[in-house]
Amino acid sequence: MSTALLYSFGGILLIGVALHRLVLTTDLLRRVVALNVFAAGIASLLIAAAYRGPEAAADPVPHAFVLTGIVVLVSTTAAALALIRRLDDLERSVDHDT
């Protein structure tokens, strides 16, 4: 079995673990982490697809995709976390009022 395929299976397992927890958890922070693990699995698949053996240079296009994906993901994560913090503040102030 080739190295690339081995790491691809690793990526698919990450996707499986992430989806499993994503569906079952009700905690918001855990959901964010699960989506990040999902993305790491997808990125691993791309990086594995780009690998062309120890001698040849890897395909740079998937690498560029993953770099872009990482930045997009950290952005979306930041937005989700800002929403979670804001909601928390609002719920807290309601708790205090009652």
Partner: peptide, 9 residues
């Protein structure tokens, strides 16, 4: 994006 993965692969 996962679909794009498979397309490119």
């Amino acid at each position: 994006l996962l679909g794009v993965d498979y397309l490119y692969a």
